[in-house]
Design a protein around this nucleic acid. Sequence first.
DNA 1: GTCATTCTTGACTAAATTAGTCAGGAATGA
DNA 2: TCATTCCTGACTAATTTAGTCAAGAATGAC
Lengths: 155, 155
Amino acid sequence: MRITSSIEYATRLMVTLAAEHGKAPLPAERLAETENVPGDYVSQILVKLRRAGLVTSHRGSAGGYSLSREPKEITLAQVVRAVDGAVFEETCERFTSGTKDCRHQGHCAISPVWTKLGELVNGYFDGVTLAAILAQKGGTCGAAPEWLEKLASGK
Amino acid sequence: MRITSSIEYATRLMVTLAAEHGKAPLPAERLAETENVPGDYVSQILVKLRRAGLVTSHRGSAGGYSLSREPKEITLAQVVRAVDGAVFEETCERFTSGTKDCRHQGHCAISPVWTKLGELVNGYFDGVTLAAILAQKGGTCGAAPEWLEKLASGK
DNA sequence: GTCATTCTTGACTAAATTAGTCAGGAATGA
DNA sequence: TCATTCCTGACTAATTTAGTCAAGAATGAC
Protein backbone atom coordinates (compact mmCIF):
# COMPACT_ATOMS: atom_id res chain seq x y z
CA MET A 1 0.00 0.00 0.00
CA ARG A 2 1.49 3.27 -1.06
CA ILE A 3 0.99 6.78 -2.38
CA THR A 4 1.47 6.84 -6.16
CA SER A 5 3.55 9.58 -7.73
CA SER A 6 0.53 11.12 -9.43
CA ILE A 7 -1.17 11.49 -6.05
CA GLU A 8 1.98 12.91 -4.54
CA TYR A 9 2.39 15.36 -7.45
CA ALA A 10 -1.26 16.35 -7.52
CA THR A 11 -1.16 17.11 -3.82
CA ARG A 12 1.98 19.19 -4.18
CA LEU A 13 0.51 21.12 -7.09
CA MET A 14 -2.65 21.84 -5.15
CA VAL A 15 -0.75 22.99 -2.08
CA THR A 16 1.39 25.28 -4.21
CA LEU A 17 -1.71 26.68 -5.89
CA ALA A 18 -3.31 27.11 -2.49
CA ALA A 19 -0.34 29.17 -1.37
CA GLU A 20 -0.87 31.43 -4.39
CA HIS A 21 -4.62 31.58 -4.02
CA GLY A 22 -5.97 35.02 -4.90
CA LYS A 23 -2.88 35.95 -6.90
CA ALA A 24 -2.18 35.52 -10.63
CA PRO A 25 -2.62 32.07 -12.17
CA LEU A 26 0.44 29.82 -12.36
CA PRO A 27 1.42 28.24 -15.70
CA ALA A 28 1.83 24.46 -15.73
CA GLU A 29 5.45 24.83 -16.71
CA ARG A 30 6.20 26.93 -13.68
CA LEU A 31 4.47 24.46 -11.40
CA ALA A 32 6.53 21.70 -12.96
CA GLU A 33 9.78 23.52 -12.26
CA THR A 34 8.72 24.29 -8.73
CA GLU A 35 8.02 20.69 -7.96
CA ASN A 36 10.83 19.31 -10.10
CA VAL A 37 8.44 17.10 -12.01
CA PRO A 38 8.15 16.50 -15.80
CA GLY A 39 6.12 19.29 -17.43
CA ASP A 40 4.02 17.08 -19.63
CA TYR A 41 3.13 14.88 -16.73
CA VAL A 42 2.11 17.84 -14.63
CA SER A 43 -0.11 19.07 -17.47
CA GLN A 44 -1.88 15.73 -17.57
CA ILE A 45 -2.55 15.82 -13.86
CA LEU A 46 -3.77 19.41 -14.06
CA VAL A 47 -6.27 18.43 -16.75
CA LYS A 48 -7.78 15.87 -14.39
CA LEU A 49 -7.91 18.39 -11.59
CA ARG A 50 -9.65 20.84 -13.90
CA ARG A 51 -12.18 18.27 -15.09
CA ALA A 52 -12.97 17.54 -11.46
CA GLY A 53 -13.63 21.24 -10.97
CA LEU A 54 -10.83 21.76 -8.49
CA VAL A 55 -8.78 24.19 -10.56
CA THR A 56 -9.58 26.74 -13.23
CA SER A 57 -7.44 27.26 -16.30
CA HIS A 58 -6.73 30.48 -18.19
CA ARG A 59 -5.24 30.40 -21.65
CA GLY A 60 -2.97 32.84 -23.40
CA SER A 61 -0.08 34.84 -22.05
CA ALA A 62 -0.29 35.45 -18.33
CA GLY A 63 -2.51 32.40 -18.25
CA GLY A 64 -2.16 29.33 -16.10
CA TYR A 65 -3.98 27.54 -13.31
CA SER A 66 -5.58 28.65 -10.10
CA LEU A 67 -7.77 27.05 -7.46
CA SER A 68 -11.45 27.24 -8.27
CA ARG A 69 -12.39 27.66 -4.62
CA GLU A 70 -10.98 28.38 -1.19
CA PRO A 71 -8.17 26.13 0.09
CA LYS A 72 -10.26 25.27 3.12
CA GLU A 73 -13.01 24.01 0.80
CA ILE A 74 -10.76 21.49 -0.92
CA THR A 75 -9.92 18.17 0.70
CA LEU A 76 -7.26 15.62 -0.11
CA ALA A 77 -10.04 13.15 -0.82
CA GLN A 78 -11.28 15.38 -3.65
CA VAL A 79 -7.80 15.66 -5.08
CA VAL A 80 -7.22 11.92 -4.96
CA ARG A 81 -10.59 11.14 -6.49
CA ALA A 82 -9.84 13.60 -9.29
CA VAL A 83 -6.67 11.83 -10.33
CA ASP A 84 -7.28 8.21 -9.31
CA GLY A 85 -11.03 7.83 -9.32
CA ALA A 86 -11.26 6.64 -5.73
CA VAL A 87 -9.40 6.95 -2.47
CA PHE A 88 -9.80 3.27 -1.64
CA GLU A 89 -11.01 0.73 -4.15
CA GLU A 90 -13.74 -1.70 -3.09
CA THR A 91 -12.01 -5.02 -2.52
CA CYS A 92 -14.87 -7.49 -2.54
CA GLU A 93 -16.04 -6.49 -6.01
CA ARG A 94 -12.63 -7.18 -7.52
CA PHE A 95 -12.86 -10.79 -6.49
CA THR A 96 -16.48 -11.45 -7.30
CA SER A 97 -16.91 -9.73 -10.65
CA GLY A 98 -17.74 -11.70 -13.75
CA THR A 99 -18.72 -15.33 -13.58
CA LYS A 100 -16.82 -16.51 -10.53
CA ASP A 101 -18.69 -15.72 -7.41
CA CYS A 102 -17.12 -15.05 -4.13
CA ARG A 103 -17.03 -18.45 -2.46
CA HIS A 104 -17.83 -16.90 0.85
CA GLN A 105 -21.18 -15.45 -0.10
CA GLY A 106 -23.23 -15.03 2.98
CA HIS A 107 -20.50 -15.76 5.43
CA CYS A 108 -17.46 -13.77 4.40
CA ALA A 109 -15.62 -12.73 7.52
CA ILE A 110 -12.88 -10.90 5.68
CA SER A 111 -14.66 -8.33 3.58
CA PRO A 112 -15.84 -6.23 6.55
CA VAL A 113 -12.18 -5.85 7.44
CA TRP A 114 -11.43 -4.24 4.09
CA THR A 115 -14.62 -2.23 4.13
CA LYS A 116 -13.76 -0.77 7.49
CA LEU A 117 -10.23 -0.01 6.36
CA GLY A 118 -11.68 1.82 3.39
CA GLU A 119 -13.87 3.90 5.64
CA LEU A 120 -10.92 4.70 7.83
CA VAL A 121 -8.77 5.85 4.93
CA ASN A 122 -11.58 7.77 3.26
CA GLY A 123 -12.37 9.50 6.52
CA TYR A 124 -8.77 10.52 6.89
CA PHE A 125 -8.53 12.00 3.40
CA ASP A 126 -11.87 13.74 3.86
CA GLY A 127 -10.53 15.42 6.95
CA VAL A 128 -7.45 16.98 5.41
CA THR A 129 -7.92 20.31 3.61
CA LEU A 130 -5.36 22.24 1.58
CA ALA A 131 -5.69 25.08 4.07
CA ALA A 132 -4.73 22.75 6.89
CA ILE A 133 -1.70 21.42 5.07
CA LEU A 134 -0.64 24.95 4.27
CA ALA A 135 -1.09 26.07 7.85
CA GLN A 136 1.43 23.65 9.27
CA LYS A 137 5.15 24.22 9.29
CA GLY A 138 6.03 20.52 9.36
CA GLY A 139 8.91 18.71 8.37
CA THR A 140 11.94 17.00 7.25
CA CYS A 141 11.85 17.07 3.57
CA GLY A 142 13.15 20.21 0.74
CA ALA A 143 13.94 24.00 -0.14
CA ALA A 144 11.61 26.69 -1.36
CA PRO A 145 11.94 27.52 -5.07
CA GLU A 146 13.53 30.87 -5.82
CA TRP A 147 10.50 32.43 -7.46
CA LEU A 148 8.34 31.53 -4.46
CA GLU A 149 11.01 32.84 -2.14
CA LYS A 150 10.98 36.13 -4.08
CA LEU A 151 7.21 36.35 -4.09
CA ALA A 152 7.15 35.77 -0.37
CA SER A 153 9.77 38.42 0.31
CA GLY A 154 7.88 40.96 -1.82
CA LYS A 155 10.37 41.43 -4.70
CA MET B 1 -5.20 2.53 -2.98
CA ARG B 2 -6.33 -1.05 -2.86
CA ILE B 3 -5.84 -4.53 -1.50
CA THR B 4 -3.77 -6.62 -3.93
CA SER B 5 -4.87 -10.14 -4.74
CA SER B 6 -1.87 -11.65 -3.00
CA ILE B 7 -2.89 -9.89 0.22
CA GLU B 8 -6.47 -10.98 -0.23
CA TYR B 9 -5.42 -14.58 -0.90
CA ALA B 10 -2.89 -14.67 1.92
CA THR B 11 -5.51 -13.43 4.34
CA ARG B 12 -8.02 -16.02 3.20
CA LEU B 13 -5.45 -18.81 3.47
CA MET B 14 -4.53 -17.76 6.96
CA VAL B 15 -8.14 -17.56 8.08
CA THR B 16 -8.81 -21.00 6.64
CA LEU B 17 -5.74 -22.39 8.39
CA ALA B 18 -6.84 -20.69 11.59
CA ALA B 19 -10.17 -22.49 11.34
CA GLU B 20 -8.27 -25.77 11.10
CA HIS B 21 -5.81 -24.92 13.82
CA GLY B 22 -4.97 -27.96 15.95
CA LYS B 23 -6.12 -30.38 13.28
CA ALA B 24 -4.13 -32.09 10.51
CA PRO B 25 -2.11 -29.88 8.14
CA LEU B 26 -3.77 -28.74 4.91
CA PRO B 27 -2.01 -29.33 1.57
CA ALA B 28 -1.53 -26.27 -0.62
CA GLU B 29 -3.63 -27.84 -3.33
CA ARG B 30 -6.57 -28.24 -0.98
CA LEU B 31 -6.28 -24.64 0.16
CA ALA B 32 -6.21 -23.56 -3.46
CA GLU B 33 -9.41 -25.43 -4.23
CA THR B 34 -11.10 -24.07 -1.13
CA GLU B 35 -10.34 -20.53 -2.10
CA ASN B 36 -10.70 -21.05 -5.82
CA VAL B 37 -7.28 -19.67 -6.50
CA PRO B 38 -4.48 -21.02 -8.77
CA GLY B 39 -2.52 -23.72 -6.97
CA ASP B 40 0.93 -22.57 -8.00
CA TYR B 41 0.15 -19.05 -6.91
CA VAL B 42 -1.05 -20.24 -3.53
CA SER B 43 2.16 -22.23 -3.10
CA GLN B 44 4.19 -19.13 -3.73
CA ILE B 45 2.29 -17.19 -1.13
CA LEU B 46 2.57 -20.01 1.38
CA VAL B 47 6.32 -20.04 0.95
CA LYS B 48 6.44 -16.38 1.96
CA LEU B 49 4.22 -17.04 4.93
CA ARG B 50 6.48 -19.89 5.98
CA ARG B 51 9.63 -17.82 5.62
CA ALA B 52 8.02 -15.20 7.84
CA GLY B 53 7.43 -17.90 10.42
CA LEU B 54 3.66 -17.66 10.30
CA VAL B 55 2.99 -21.18 9.04
CA THR B 56 4.78 -24.51 9.32
CA SER B 57 5.08 -26.93 6.43
CA HIS B 58 5.13 -30.72 6.54
CA ARG B 59 6.25 -32.74 3.55
CA GLY B 60 5.25 -36.15 2.38
CA SER B 61 1.85 -37.75 2.29
CA ALA B 62 -0.53 -36.35 4.85
CA GLY B 63 1.68 -33.27 4.80
CA GLY B 64 0.64 -29.68 4.21
CA TYR B 65 0.58 -26.39 6.07
CA SER B 66 -0.56 -25.36 9.48
CA LEU B 67 -0.33 -22.21 11.58
CA SER B 68 2.85 -21.99 13.61
CA ARG B 69 1.11 -20.29 16.50
CA GLU B 70 -2.28 -19.45 17.93
CA PRO B 71 -4.71 -17.50 15.72
CA LYS B 72 -4.96 -14.82 18.37
CA GLU B 73 -1.17 -14.36 18.17
CA ILE B 74 -1.21 -13.59 14.44
CA THR B 75 -2.18 -10.17 13.12
CA LEU B 76 -3.09 -9.01 9.65
CA ALA B 77 -0.08 -6.73 9.78
CA GLN B 78 2.19 -9.75 10.09
CA VAL B 79 0.50 -11.45 7.18
CA VAL B 80 0.77 -8.39 4.95
CA ARG B 81 4.40 -7.82 5.88
CA ALA B 82 5.14 -11.44 5.04
CA VAL B 83 3.84 -11.17 1.49
CA ASP B 84 4.40 -7.51 0.63
CA GLY B 85 7.24 -6.41 2.85
CA ALA B 86 5.33 -3.53 4.43
CA VAL B 87 1.80 -2.52 5.25
CA PHE B 88 2.34 1.05 4.10
CA GLU B 89 5.39 2.11 2.15
CA GLU B 90 7.24 5.23 3.26
CA THR B 91 6.31 7.93 0.77
CA CYS B 92 8.96 10.57 1.29
CA GLU B 93 11.82 8.16 0.62
CA ARG B 94 10.45 7.23 -2.75
CA PHE B 95 10.72 10.81 -3.94
CA THR B 96 14.08 11.65 -2.43
CA SER B 97 16.11 8.55 -3.23
CA GLY B 98 19.08 8.71 -5.55
CA THR B 99 20.53 12.01 -6.72
CA LYS B 100 17.48 14.23 -6.83
CA ASP B 101 16.65 15.59 -3.46
CA CYS B 102 13.19 16.44 -2.32
CA ARG B 103 12.82 20.17 -3.00
CA HIS B 104 10.95 20.71 0.22
CA GLN B 105 13.80 19.83 2.57
CA GLY B 106 13.22 21.37 5.93
CA HIS B 107 9.71 22.62 5.41
CA CYS B 108 7.69 19.91 3.75
CA ALA B 109 4.10 20.27 4.85
CA ILE B 110 2.91 17.23 2.95
CA SER B 111 5.07 14.40 4.22
CA PRO B 112 3.57 14.48 7.72
CA VAL B 113 0.20 13.85 6.07
CA TRP B 114 1.44 10.60 4.56
CA THR B 115 3.31 9.62 7.69
CA LYS B 116 0.17 9.99 9.74
CA LEU B 117 -1.82 7.99 7.24
CA GLY B 118 0.78 5.26 7.44
CA GLU B 119 0.46 5.16 11.21
CA LEU B 120 -3.29 4.96 10.92
CA VAL B 121 -3.21 2.05 8.50
CA ASN B 122 -0.48 0.21 10.36
CA GLY B 123 -2.37 0.59 13.58
CA TYR B 124 -5.46 -0.84 12.00
CA PHE B 125 -3.69 -3.90 10.63
CA ASP B 126 -1.90 -4.41 13.93
CA GLY B 127 -5.24 -4.54 15.68
CA VAL B 128 -6.80 -7.30 13.63
CA THR B 129 -5.97 -10.90 14.59
CA LEU B 130 -6.94 -14.08 12.79
CA ALA B 131 -8.89 -15.16 15.86
CA ALA B 132 -10.94 -11.98 15.73
CA ILE B 133 -11.75 -12.43 12.05
CA LEU B 134 -12.69 -16.02 12.67
CA ALA B 135 -14.88 -15.16 15.61
CA GLN B 136 -17.22 -13.02 13.59
CA LYS B 137 -20.04 -14.33 11.48
CA GLY B 138 -19.97 -11.41 9.10
CA GLY B 139 -22.56 -10.91 6.43
CA THR B 140 -22.67 -10.74 2.67
CA CYS B 141 -19.50 -8.82 2.23
CA GLY B 142 -21.18 -6.58 4.73
CA ALA B 143 -21.76 -5.40 8.24
CA ALA B 144 -18.76 -4.92 10.44
CA PRO B 145 -18.75 -6.42 13.92
CA GLU B 146 -18.44 -4.23 17.01
CA TRP B 147 -14.79 -4.91 17.68
CA LEU B 148 -13.93 -3.72 14.16
CA GLU B 149 -16.07 -0.66 14.59
CA LYS B 150 -14.18 0.19 17.76
CA LEU B 151 -10.80 -0.39 16.17
CA ALA B 152 -11.57 1.92 13.27
CA SER B 153 -12.93 4.66 15.47
CA GLY B 154 -9.97 4.61 17.83
CA LYS B 155 -12.09 3.28 20.72
C1' DG C 1 13.20 -50.03 -0.73
C1' DT C 2 9.73 -48.23 -3.71
C1' DC C 3 6.37 -44.99 -4.57
C1' DA C 4 2.95 -41.46 -4.43
C1' DT C 5 2.45 -37.22 -2.05
C1' DT C 6 3.74 -32.82 -0.91
C1' DC C 7 6.78 -29.07 -0.30
C1' DT C 8 11.07 -26.12 -2.43
C1' DT C 9 13.40 -23.29 -5.44
C1' DG C 10 13.87 -20.18 -8.78
C1' DA C 11 13.24 -18.83 -13.25
C1' DC C 12 9.91 -17.58 -16.55
C1' DT C 13 5.81 -15.26 -18.96
C1' DA C 14 1.68 -12.42 -19.23
C1' DA C 15 -1.25 -8.81 -17.92
C1' DA C 16 -2.15 -4.59 -15.80
C1' DT C 17 -0.92 -0.34 -13.95
C1' DT C 18 1.91 3.59 -13.47
C1' DA C 19 4.85 6.93 -15.25
C1' DG C 20 6.16 9.74 -18.65
C1' DT C 21 6.45 11.55 -23.71
C1' DC C 22 4.96 13.75 -27.82
C1' DA C 23 2.71 16.23 -31.51
C1' DG C 24 -0.66 18.98 -33.61
C1' DG C 25 -4.15 22.27 -32.51
C1' DA C 26 -6.93 26.04 -30.40
C1' DA C 27 -7.68 30.04 -27.41
C1' DT C 28 -6.00 34.33 -25.51
C1' DG C 29 -3.83 38.67 -24.55
C1' DA C 30 0.08 41.82 -25.73
C1' DT D 1 0.40 38.98 -35.73
C1' DC D 2 2.62 36.39 -32.51
C1' DA D 3 4.34 34.34 -28.36
C1' DT D 4 2.24 32.12 -24.59
C1' DT D 5 -0.42 28.78 -22.62
C1' DC D 6 -3.84 25.34 -22.36
C1' DC D 7 -6.22 20.99 -24.85
C1' DT D 8 -6.63 16.44 -26.64
C1' DG D 9 -5.45 12.08 -27.26
C1' DA D 10 -2.38 8.74 -28.67
C1' DC D 11 1.91 6.67 -27.78
C1' DT D 12 5.97 4.39 -25.30
C1' DA D 13 8.57 2.77 -21.36
C1' DA D 14 9.09 1.08 -16.81
C1' DT D 15 7.43 -1.26 -13.00
C1' DT D 16 4.48 -4.12 -10.45
C1' DT D 17 1.25 -7.70 -10.04
C1' DA D 18 -0.42 -12.05 -11.24
C1' DG D 19 0.22 -16.38 -12.59
C1' DT D 20 2.93 -20.52 -14.73
C1' DC D 21 6.31 -24.06 -15.02
C1' DA D 22 9.76 -27.60 -14.29
C1' DA D 23 13.22 -30.12 -11.91
C1' DG D 24 14.19 -31.68 -7.45
C1' DA D 25 14.14 -33.09 -2.49
C1' DA D 26 11.90 -34.71 1.76
C1' DT D 27 8.53 -37.70 3.90
C1' DG D 28 5.37 -41.29 5.20
C1' DA D 29 2.66 -45.36 3.54
C1' DC D 30 3.13 -49.76 1.88
